[in-house]
């Protein structure tokens, strides 16, 4: 799902499901290379975890609010609040493990 300033509140902050947000930028090669992995996860986790992408250059307000300092940044929101994040390219296995660790124990570690 493509996130922007218009839908961020509804789709992320008010979502009943946990949401994994991929903060990315067009000038960032790692962001481009994780695109297919993120798309696969979005399909595989449908109904359990929502997955969305937010372009930080097109939406600097939201990127600023969450202090995105480097991309790609994967931020997991549960109940509208950030519970954990990972920065830098991740393999599919790593992203899955990250979600399992955070969601398996209902709340994540808030790891940064």
């Amino acid at each position: 799902m493509i996130l922007n300033a218009d839908n961020f509140e509804k789709e992320v902050l008010k979502s009943s499901l946990p949401v994994l947000v991929d903060f990315w930028a067009s000038w960032c090669p790692p962001c481009k290379m994780v695109e297919p992995v993120v798309a696969e996860l979005e399909r595989e986790l449908a109904g359990r975890v929502k997955v969305g992408k937010l372009n930080v250059d097109q939406n600097p307000g939201i990127a600023g609010r969450y202090h995105i300092q480097g991309v790609p940044a994967f931020v997991l929101f549960v109940g509208g609040k950030e519970v954990a994040r990972r920065v830098g390219a991740q393999s599919k296995t790593q992203l899955r493990r990250f979600l399992e660790e955070c969601l398996g124990s209902s709340r994540g570690s808030g790891e940064r």
């Binding site: 090669p29 790692p30 962001c31 481009k32 290379m33 992995v37 830098g88 390219a89 991740q90 393999s91």
Partner: peptide
């Protein structure tokens, strides 16, 4: 340990 190389040349 393990790291993704995604995006590196």
């Amino acid at each position: 340990r393990e790291w993704s190389l995604g995006g590196e040349l």
